[in-house]
């Protein structure tokens, strides 16, 4: 190969050693990447495997059966699915307009010097561990809801069945409100990032044509960011679905679908957390895992849909 006179033998040897390093490093990092993917599969498989006794015994009817009776060894998930969906939906309805308004305030209204510290504070709200929020929820917020908010709701909207019954410091409503507090920072942080990335020319152009700031936001900025907002809401929803600890502290762990929002209820995550000290039968253990499997499917679907929305949004944005 060479005719220049120097012997390539020694460099060749070294090069082989170097090659080995490259191959090894690539192999190890590939193994790590594959292991991460395998982990997701392992979690799915193990949860289904452990839930199998209950899946076998109750079949799909578990999903629409309202029962949790360790004496008769009869279980169903409907009450917990209802609790999860209901608390999360209430949280979503309350948190979404508030989050969008916060994000608009931070990007469009507030002067920069004010916006930066407030954005940091909203981020810190997201950093509060859920167990601390639950502690606050059960010892401070719950009693306040019982003594002030619920009597007021009853006075104003008492004709609605959801606001009937005895005000209580634990129940569906306090749990939904704690979840609202948990998801506001998530959705508002994502919305803020979205609004910052909307091209300034669009809003400026609209205002130059004579629209007010609000009109520019409603007719230009919000439609432009709409898919992203949808994804932000879905990610917040995913968090609300999966939260177990703060909810289990304030929801009261009821076994049935409550008729009023003041009554105790339970969510999938909260029921699983409440049973950590052990199940009394194989079927009960399986049923808890069945709940975990349902929870996993719900959060998976929410997350994947959010991803798809983001991916589409990115594609549309790139087309501009």
């Amino acid at each position: 190969m060479t005719s220049t006179g120097y012997t390539p033998a020694a460099p060749d040897l070294r090069r082989r050693g170097i090659r080995l390093g490259d191959v090894l490093f690539r192999g190890v990092s590939l193994a790590a990447a594959l292991a991460a993917a395998a982990l997701l599969g392992l979690i799915t498989w193990k949860v289904i495997d452990l839930a199998w006794p209950a899946m076998d015994a109750f079949g799909l009817s578990f999903v629409w059966t309202e029962a949790w009776d360790p004496v008769k060894d009869l279980y169903g998930g409907l009450a917990f699915i209802y609790g999860t969906v209901m608390t999360s939906l209430i949280a979503l309805v309350l948190a979404t307009p508030l989050s969008i308004a916060i994000a608009l305030f931070l990007t469009e209204i507030a002067p920069r010097r004010l916006a930066a510290p407030i954005a940091t504070m909203v981020e810190l709200l997201a950093a509060i561990p859920s167990v601390v929020l639950g502690l606050w929820g059960i010892l401070v917020f719950g009693p306040w809801v019982r003594d002030h908010l619920e009597p007021w709701l009853q006075g104003a909207f008492g004709f609605l069945p959801i606001f009937s019954g005895q005000p209580s410091q634990v129940g569906l409503l306090p749990a939904a409100l704690v979840l609202t507090i948990m998801i506001i920072p998530i959705t508002s942080a994502i919305c803020r990032e979205l609004f910052v990335r909307v091209p300034k020319d669009l809003v400026d152009g609209s205002m130059a044509l004579g629209s007010t700031r609000w009109e520019a936001i409603r007719k230009v900025l919000l439609p432009y960011a709409a898919p992203g907002i949808a994804a932000a809401i879905l990610l917040g929803l995913g968090r609300a679905f999966g939260e177990a600890i703060a909810v289990t502290q304030v929801i009261g762990n009821g076994n049935v679908i409550p008729s009023s929002w003041f009554e105790p209820a339970d969510t999938l995550g909260s029921r699983i957390a409440a049973q950590y000290q052990g199940a009394t039968s194989v079927l009960q253990a399986g049923s808890i895992l069945y709940l975990a499997a349902i929870l996993m499917v719900i959060s998976l679907v929410t997350n994947v849909v959010a991803q798809l929305v983001v991916a589409r949004f990115e594609k549309v944005r790139r087309a501009y």
């Binding site: 990447a33 991460a36 993917a37 982990l39 997701l40 392992l42 979690i43 193990k46 949860v47 495997d49 452990l50 995913g238 679905f241 999966g242 939260e243 177990a244 600890i245 995550g269 699983i272 957390a273 950590y276 808890i288 895992l289 975990a292 929870l295 996993m296 959060s299 998976l300 929410t302 997350n303 994947v304 991803q307």
Partner: peptide, 23 residues
């Protein structure tokens, strides 16, 4: 891989807990 990691990130902590418990 990015999608896999994002999905893994979305698995509720309580499910991860009961997974390690069962495993």
């Amino acid at each position: 891989l990015r999608v896999v990691l994002d999905i893994l990130n979305g698995v509720p902590a309580i499910v991860v807990g009961i997974f390690v418990f069962g495993l």
